[in-house]
Design a protein around this nucleic acid. Sequence first.
DNA 1: AAACCCGTCAACCGCGTACCA
DNA 2: ATGGTACGCGGTTGACGGGTT
Length: 470
Amino acid sequence: MEDGGNGGDKGGGGGATTIDVALKKGPWTTTEDAILIDYVTKHGEGNWNAVQRNIGLARCGKSCRLRWANHFRPNLKKGAFSSEEEKLIIDFHAQFGNKWARMAALLPGRTDNEIKNYWNTRVKPRQRQGLPLYSDDPNRPTTTTATTTPAAAAVTHLGSNFMHNVQTTNKFEFIQQSYLPSSPQHHSPLASPLQYSALTLSSPLSSYATSSSPLSFTFQRPAPLLYNPLSFKRYRSTPNFNLDDGFEFPNHLNSSSSFSHLFQSPTSLDDLERNELSFEFSPSNVQSKMQFFSNQMEPLEVKYDAEYNDPSFLTMNNNRFVGDFLFETQALDSSPQILKKRNYLGLNEGNNDVFDSYQNIDGSPLSSLDWSSTPGLRPKEEANDLNKSLNNDLSTLLNVMPSTMHDQQDWQQNCATEVSNKVQSSYVIIDDNFGLDMKSKTSLFPFISVATNHNDNRGSYPCDNLSTQC
DNA sequence: AAACCCGTCAACCGCGTACCA
DNA sequence: ATGGTACGCGGTTGACGGGTT
């Protein structure tokens, strides 16, 4: 956030190596802005000191980063905070304190500096004077209730459409991967958030990584909350695994699905070969491509890429879901940093605390206490800290989702047992942001039918009705 | 009209942490 | 293990504009 230089880019040793040029301070000129934008557009974010080194912009790296982050970063939302944002800020502050960056991560398009300034200039004075914190609701209590956490409020706020699509018929399993872009992610600050270009990502860390973008379906929200999209995975369960064994997503969609128009040309999996197969569909306005990746030892992975050139596509009611996912992909595309860590949270079979274990990169279970044994995966403190809060968030999410189900408590308890009995691990991977990937094992989405392979810990399991089967 | 006050916001400062050689 | 570099965070400052005196 607001960092910046003092000529030597001091601060924690963050030193500029080239100090020959007197670095400028103070307000940025339009010329400087143009230079910065041009540089970042061409070279991507990061390595901020190189801006000064390479193109002679007389600003230290910190100042460049700050200027970019607060003014030119893609998807920045300018203007006054909405009342909903205000409420979220107040709620977040009640939970996090002065953790402006964390709040910013939960308020898409807003910077920590913005939030901090807002707090210090609007909320704090009201607080000091004993006035209600919520500008539009003088009667609203100034503390959050025990039953509605800020995270829950956010989930509720952001996920209404998502919840609308959730039905009670399927269990689900979360997974998220972090992908390292194979090349610097370039993103024009001038690009519309709705201009999506296909990604080429690779994940050298992932044993089941492929060379294509992980794709994603995500839930409704006004702007990307997650850097990494959701993806559906189908794991090869046995050496005899057969593609024909009933993996039907996403070809098997009912007519009410918002995806249905995307998958109008049924393509039999018989037609697919074992390695990196793909077929394409071209619904109106969207170029999409679905890929299956598989080999004998690795999980089959389904990728769905799409690009579109008509922003109105996203606003069509029946495309909201796809719109979300495209938006999410855009968020991935514009991710300001390469995700360097892969922190896994998985279901802890045995109790109700479902998110406190970890998985190694290679898929082997890893105790949450074992960070030190996996140097490559050791999370920074922040990530751990975030994990904690995300534990809450995810728990909240889980609390919300089953609320549409028949019996939430039973669902939680029985599904924990179910997981324990049948599944080695299911994961939510936490990075600086978090996301949920969904194995095909289960589906939150009633319009996605997943036939299953059997007798395998990593395979798919039918659970047609939670309330009766779980 | 000038001086002053105050709110807002961009930018700076100092520090901490991650990463790497 | 250590030191250097890069980056990010929270606190703070100062410029600026609008309103008031």
